[in-house]
Computed example of a mutant assay.
Amino acid sequence: MPATTNAPLKTANTANAAAVLSTAVARAAERLHVSRSLLAKILGVSPATVTRLYAGAYQLEPQRKEWEFGLLFVRLFRSLDSIVGEESSARKWLDSDNRALNGRPIELISNTEGLVRVVHYLDASRGLV
């Protein structure tokens, strides 16, 4: 058998994963009331790209950094959702000063270091529950 028999399946899985993550990122941002301009900063893409993402005309690409940032952002949402249980509390948490993080999480997640710190903090907090 030729080695390329799985190539169409691999391409389909990649396309499906891109669609799923792209949709998850947009929905998480909506539910947390993260603005499109902030989401663009988080993902490291232009605001126009985020607009296309919301419209379904653009999907995050697995080979690019935007993919990793998208995964981290969805992980943040899932961790926060599992800890607080409701969107309004999650939004309040993001907007509140956090002594452990030394800042407001909504401001911290606009850059890579802050996003990683907030995700690690939530992962550690979730482990205590």
Rank of each mutant, 00 (worst) to 15 (best):
A15N: 10
R99E: 15
K92S: 15
A100W: 07
R64W: 12
V25C: 01
S22A: 07
K92A: 15
R31P: 01
H33G: 02
D97T: 11
E87F: 13
F73W: 06
R78H: 12
L21G: 00
R75K: 12
V25F: 05
I42C: 09
S89H: 09
A48G: 09
S96W: 06
V45F: 08
A24G: 02
A15S: 13
L53G: 02
L72T: 04
G85Y: 04
Y54M: 05
I42Y: 00
L39G: 05
P47L: 00
A48N: 10
A24M: 02
K92W: 11
L53D: 02
A40N: 02
L32N: 04
L39C: 07
S22K: 07
S46N: 01
R31T: 12
V34Q: 04
D97P: 15
A90T: 03
Q63P: 02
G70L: 09
L94P: 06
L60T: 01
L38M: 13
P62Y: 14
L53E: 01
A18R: 03
L32I: 02
A100M: 11
E68P: 10
A40C: 12
A57K: 13
G70W: 05
E30M: 14
E86N: 13
A15T: 10
A12M: 06
L71H: 14
L32F: 03
A29P: 03
L60K: 01
R31N: 15
R75N: 13
V25G: 05
G70F: 10
A26W: 00
A12L: 04
S46Y: 08
T49R: 04
T14P: 03
R78E: 13
A29Y: 00
D95S: 14
W93S: 07
L43C: 02
L43E: 07
L80D: 04
E66C: 08
L32G: 05
K92P: 09
L39K: 02
L60P: 01
A40T: 06
S89L: 10
G85C: 01
A57P: 07
L71T: 14
D95Y: 07
P62R: 11
T14K: 12
Q63L: 08
E87A: 12
S79D: 15
A24H: 01
S88D: 15
I83V: 08
A40H: 07
A48K: 08
L53S: 01
V25Q: 03
R27A: 07
T51G: 10
Y58I: 04
S89Q: 11
N98K: 07
E61H: 14
A18V: 00
E66S: 11
V74L: 08
Y58T: 02
G56F: 02
A17R: 04
Y54P: 01
S82H: 12
F73K: 07
A24C: 03
V25A: 02
L60G: 06
L101T: 07
S82A: 13
V45P: 09
S88E: 12
K92D: 15
A90G: 15
S96G: 13
D81T: 13
L94V: 08
I83T: 05
I42H: 07
A28R: 02
A26N: 00
K65V: 15
V45D: 09
E61V: 15
E86Q: 10
K65A: 14
V74D: 09
G56A: 05
R31E: 14
E66W: 04
R31M: 13
R52T: 08
L21I: 03
A19Y: 03
W67P: 08
L80M: 06
A12C: 06
R64P: 15
K65D: 14
R64A: 13
K65P: 13
V34D: 08
E61W: 11
